Simulated scan of single mutants.
Amino acid sequence: MTLDPISLRTAFGSYMTGVTVVTAMSPDSVPVGFTANSFTSVSLDPPLLLVCPAKRLSSYDLFHTCTRFAVNILADDQAAISTLFASRTEDRFGQVNWAQDAWGSPLIEGATAQFSCRVHNRVEAGDHDILIGEVLDFDSNDKPGLGYASGGYFSRSLEHKAQTGVATEMEKRFVGGIISYGDQLLLTPTETGLRLPHFRVPARTSALDTLTHALDGTGIEIGAVYSIYTDTKADRSYTFYRGTAPSVEVANLGRFLPLGSVPQALTGPMAERTIIERYILESQNQQFGLYVGDDEYGDLHPVHPVQKGS
């Protein structure tokens, strides 16, 4: 049986991992590195870890022959560094702060953990090498690590904000869904017109648990957090998740409208229209960001694809 490599890659990518940048110094003292989520702790005695550089890497020959390397586990505010080292950009080290360890390998500043290694073993395995390193020294801190799954980054600290809510008054928290079926989105009728489906979050309850309970029995699959914002005029906080419906029949939640007509149909807060306008743009290439802020100002945390061992 022949396996479809694209489908296989997608299946592999469903496993949630951290993100690392693996680095080494060339014989002529040029730093090199690549982004990888193929990182595993192997042993405590002796202290061993492994990474898997791809044979297609421009720096593959160096990692295939090096005797020293380092692994930098990126913090959740270092997605841009992950993207940089997954690209073919020249002089990548000129765009980050770094220093050499005692053996000359580059360590990226701000990482949540750093491991200085010497090569313990190297095994060729298909289109990758399995590079096993003995840990000579390490450093770590309590910064949350950058996560990766299904083609995008996620942040533990941002996920925590989404589940606990951003408002201080528990009774003013709401959770909602941007629920799609094909190229249609679900809208719910309210006293003031059509709005995105949303529900009040009870005290001592997480936003995600509330949404899961509200959608129980509909077959709707809840996806990633899409927007966390405070409505400053109403003094309420909203957390919206993306979701997919199995059909247009979803109990009494509302009705589906073509994606392009949703912004004009919405009659709720302007923030909801802004959310959908951004969703329309991002759905064109299936790369979604995460907005954290209020109904006027905030930060959009981009989600960039990153390839294993690239």
Rank of each mutant, 00 (worst) to 15 (best):
L84E: 08
H301V: 06
D4S: 04
E282D: 12
V71Q: 05
T230S: 10
R195F: 08
L84D: 07
N72T: 05
D101W: 00
C117Y: 05
W103V: 07
V250L: 03
K172H: 03
F12I: 02
Q163M: 10
G177S: 00
R56N: 15
E277K: 09
T218L: 04
T10A: 08
T244K: 14
S261C: 01
D101S: 01
R118S: 10
T192N: 08
K161P: 15
E191I: 01
E109C: 04
T192V: 00
L84Q: 06
A54F: 14
I179N: 03
D139I: 00
D4Y: 05
Q284C: 08
L44Y: 09
T40H: 15
R68Q: 14
S41L: 11
A70E: 03
G268R: 03
F174W: 05
R236N: 12
A207W: 00
Y279N: 07
P258V: 00
G151R: 04
G151P: 09
E221P: 06
S206M: 03
Q264F: 12
G147D: 08
T65V: 10
P263N: 09
D299M: 04
P263Y: 09
T65N: 13
S247Q: 09
E221W: 02
G147N: 04
E249L: 08
Y226S: 11
D231R: 04
G223T: 00
V201W: 02
D28N: 15
S82M: 08
E296T: 13
A80G: 07
T40I: 15
H304W: 12
C52F: 12
Q284K: 14
E109S: 14
N141L: 05
N97S: 14
F69A: 02
R122K: 09
Y60M: 06
D231L: 03
R236F: 02
S150F: 13
V21R: 05
A24M: 09
E171W: 13
G223K: 04
G104T: 02
E90Y: 02
G147Q: 07
F39V: 05
G223H: 11
H120E: 12
Y229N: 10
A245V: 05
A265V: 00
L290I: 02
E159V: 05
Y153I: 00
E159K: 11
Y226I: 00
A79N: 06
S247A: 05
T17K: 06
Y241M: 01
Y279Q: 07
F115C: 03
V30N: 15
S38D: 15
D231M: 02
S283V: 00
D61K: 15
D76R: 02
A54N: 15
M270D: 12
H64M: 09
G104L: 02
R278W: 07
S38I: 07
V166P: 08
F154K: 03
S310C: 14
W98D: 01
I276K: 06
F174H: 10
G145C: 06
S43F: 11
F34Y: 09
S247V: 03
S7K: 13
Q114I: 01
D299I: 01
D77T: 06
G176A: 03
V32W: 04
L8Q: 11
V22S: 07
P202D: 09
Q184F: 00
H64G: 12
K161I: 12
G177W: 01
H198E: 04
N141F: 11
L194M: 09
G298T: 02
Y226E: 12
E277T: 03
